[in-house]
Design a protein around this nucleic acid. Structure first.
Lengths: 360, 360
DNA sequence: CTGTTAGCGCCTTCAT
DNA sequence: ATGAAGGCGCTAACAG
């Protein structure tokens, strides 16, 4: 109720007008000072302005600046799942690039909820971000209508979105899947299970699975005979389905282990996880079923390189996550600056990190 | 090169003026509609406005609204280290609460760099966020001058900051450390090493270490005799120092294992990690040194409950991370709304999750 | 070199 | 029930 009698509440931040008054000059000069048009200011005036700013602890209001000049240096970073270390790593690259380019990333976490994704996109739009980097859930274009061709510039990360033409940067899934599969074949494995979450909706999963199948079906040409490849869908969102899938895998492992005539890796089944969450779920299950020494019966290879990989000794395909994030921002920045080329694809190579799991 | 020389660039978003014109009315009515002052609008006008908004795909500019009404519903969330799963989990709670309260969190990741922290704080301030939640690096007050008493409302998470009076929410470190230590003592361990990153600067680490030492020094009263407690500082930021510290631990483990007269857990040394990053580093080292069966010689107990804990079978103290984040936002919201009570402490209990590591 | 003026998109009295 | 006018904090022409 009290007016300005007591400065109990936060003592309103100083505005450019306050500074102008304090420095005994006009707002324009302050503005010029703020924008580094230092050449057009007498040293004397400049000093006065500096002092006034100091005294008032003045900090220009970005919102107002943004409103005026029509851009606020904000970009949105929409992440499907921060729980996945992949996301955090990409984020680091994004942050570094933003820092370098004078951008401020608004990080939004959809937590695997389509509804959240929609909501955040709308919010970003409303805050007039200059562009967005989207690590989308596996959804069709409609939910991200505001971005892309018609709306604000967008760059996709890891996954493309059906019907949305936009730059995309991510792993070279095809090459990486081949790398992994060949590593297993070269290691002597003859039964390989590719385990992946439902993949129809998510382009990266689709590509990985397809490349795996292709290598498996053409491998006779590479001198390998009678190797079998299977694809197993693991729906982590549904515990019941997950159980069923795991049971199927168990049967295969048990069967393989009971074959008498085989030795070495030919007797072990190899499991190729399409990403870290899948690998974790598999490892937990296998450990629960076969005990601490589960890797004696199963070899595990996984996309991503989570922090526990080294501890467990599983082989992985590490993605150049930092660079993915960095490049995404660079692409976006170009778009913001008006570059009009056709949609670009930036596929970065993965790195195979061989550990005990596949090389004993 | 361009067909329609006009709409080549993004077709400027519609403004409230456009909508007013389209609906054949004044800006005021549009504004009223947007703010739900539906009672003061004839159904007929309302319908026209609705239609106009649809047609123009109009979305009010939050920046402008914020500028005008002096608040933008933005809050800052400053995180010391997103790489630590703790942060991501807290974040989930923060997001949920923001969602519920109509706030939009600006997530800033300091990546363990004091300079970053300073920079982001300054940035948040210029964007005129209404408050900040700070999971600070271990720094003194000065770097976060803009917040707290003098500046915008702030709530601390996990760690207090010397010289800054503000609400704080986090784990009840004292109780949790006691819980863990007693668990080890009850399990028969007689040599316990508390391993922690440099803790002078970080209140939570300090509290944990102090509580550990206190329990160890008063335990004779609890009927336990001759148990030894040691504190080992592991400076993860410095590889060399880390090596040295680990070597010291190794010597202790080797010595304990060579004692003839002891059996069971009395022969194993227990290591109590002050957080997940420390636990991971320890586990990696121990595995490298003692092989896959390292837990036969060392029991590991850790604060935090990282995803690999179950896989490795180490005992942990899980923090109520989600709730911590949620409560932090609630506190902040109250402050934003003007609540003036003295600084509050919200200490939430941890949960001991016993696994094979400490119970074989 | 420096100040004046006119908005950016929106909300808010204050009239009508 | 509706609209006109002024201003939030700042920048960008224009003068001088």
């Amino acid at each position: 109720m009290s007016t300005t009698s007591t400065s109990q509440t936060t003592p309103r931040r100083a505005t450019i007008t306050d500074v102008a008054r304090e420095a005994g000059t006009g707002k324009t000069s302050i503005s010029r000072y703020l924008n580094g048009e230092t050449s057009a200011l007498s040293p004397e005036l400049r000093a006065r302005i500096e002092a006034a700013i100091q005294r008032l602890d003045y900090q220009p209001n970005q919102m107002a600046r943004g409103l005026k000049r029509g851009r606020n240096r904000l970009i949105g970073m929409l992440l499907a799942d921060l729980t996945n270390p992949y996301s955090v790593e990409v984020l680091q690259g994004v942050e570094a690039a933003c820092h370098a380019l004078g951008l401020m990333p608004l990080i939004c976490h959809a937590a695997n909820e389509v509804e959240m994704e929609r909501r955040y996109l709308q919010l970003l739009t409303t805050y007039r971000v200059e562009g967005v980097i989207v690590n989308a859930l596996g959804v069709r274009e409609e939910t991200l209508r505001p971005v892309g061709s018609g709306g604000i510039p967008a760059v996709l990360v890891d996954r493309s979105v059906e019907g949305l033409v936009a730059d995309i940067v991510g792993l070279d899934n095809r090459a990486a899947a081949e790398l992994g599969t060949r590593h297993l074949l070269d290691g002597g494995f003859r039964e390989i299970w590719f385990v992946v979450q439902p993949f129809e909706q998510v382009s990266s999963r689709r590509l990985r699975e397809a490349a795996f199948r292709e290598v498996m079906s053409t491998q006779p040409a590479a001198g390998v005979k009678d190797a079998q490849g299977h694809t197993l869908v693991l729906n982590l969102a549904d515990p019941l389905q997950t159980e069923r899938s795991l049971a199927e895998l168990d049967r295969a492992i048990d069967a393989a282990n009971s074959h008498a005539g085989t030795v070495g890796n030919a007797a072990r089944v190899a499991v190729f996880a399409a990403n870290a969450p899948v690998a974790l779920r598999l490892a937990l299950h296998l450990k629960a079923r076969y005990g601490a020494d589960w890797q004696a019966r199963v070899a595990l290879l996984s996309f991503d390189d989570p922090e526990w990989a080294e501890l467990t000794g599983i082989t992985t395909i590490r993605q150049p996550t930092y660079e993915i994030g960095y490049r995404a921002v660079e692409f976006l920045y170009e778009r913001i600056e008006g570059v009009q080329t056709t949609a670009r694809d930036c596929l970065l190579p993965g790195e195979l990190i061989v550990r005990a799991s596949t090389s004993r």
